[in-house]
Amino acid sequence: MDDELGARLKVYEGRAATLTGTGRDPVNLPMIRHWCEAMGDTNPAYTGPGAIAPPTMLQAWTMGGLAGHEGRAAAHDEMFALLDAAGCTSIVATDCEQEYLRPLRPGDEVTFDTVIESVSARKTTKLGTGYFITTRTDVRVGPELVGTHRFRVLKYAPARPAQQPPPRPRPVVNRDNAGFWEGVARHRLLIQRCTACAALRLPWLPGCNACGGPDWDTVEASGEGTVYSYVVMHHPPFPAFDPPYAVALIELAEGVRIISNVVGVPYDKVRIDMPVRLEFRSYDDELVLPVFRVREEVAV
């Protein structure tokens, strides 16, 4: 069986998660009022001398808050430690079923017992892969059962590993521009030249813009150029990029233009006519791109 963790978790079914937990505060009007304010609930039953607590507050009276839970049984902590160790570090609540046997009133002091009712087999969800854990809590005031609370959480390993930025987009390589990208891989910026009329063209195209001739060869760019125009990207942010950044149209010494990035200066120091020089930058194991560095004599 490949769900070994699932089998280990199953053992906890039926075991106590909390034994005689005690509410941090007795049921009280200030917490009721804060709840009603947050929910926008103006029901008069929750105010005044005969006030009851909103029944849906049932779980709130059992919450540990920042101070944490008292009375948690070892089974609960062990089970969660197993899940954390397996990478299921995130948690999200999915179901809540409450039954209210009598209203809670200011002054009531609640106690509660929670049992681990069931643990699912391993499930893969949109959020990630993990286990659904269902608990049932009986809430009492003194010996009297006042409500029950069944709660289901998904304890899971997030599908997207945290803090790993997505890779930069890949160039679209086809038979018309494959030679350009082969040149870039060898750290050469190749310009197409029409063999009929000698016109240069960049980006690469299947035919000559000047004479329509289909045949071509290449010349290697010297690498010298100037900023012909630029924009600064602020919005929208694309996942692989960190705005703001400058996107420049570089005019090469040969007279053709290429869209690229200017490096070596902050985005807000890029200027038209700035002299730049070609270099090749590796972004990851596979991706090399031509970029243009501001020449030292003008660097700011």
Binding site: P55, T56, A93, D95, E97, Q98, E99, Y100
Partner: peptide
């Protein structure tokens, strides 16, 4: 309110 059962 007697019972509230929700799924997210």
């Amino acid at each position: 309110l007697r019972k509230v059962a929700i799924r997210l």
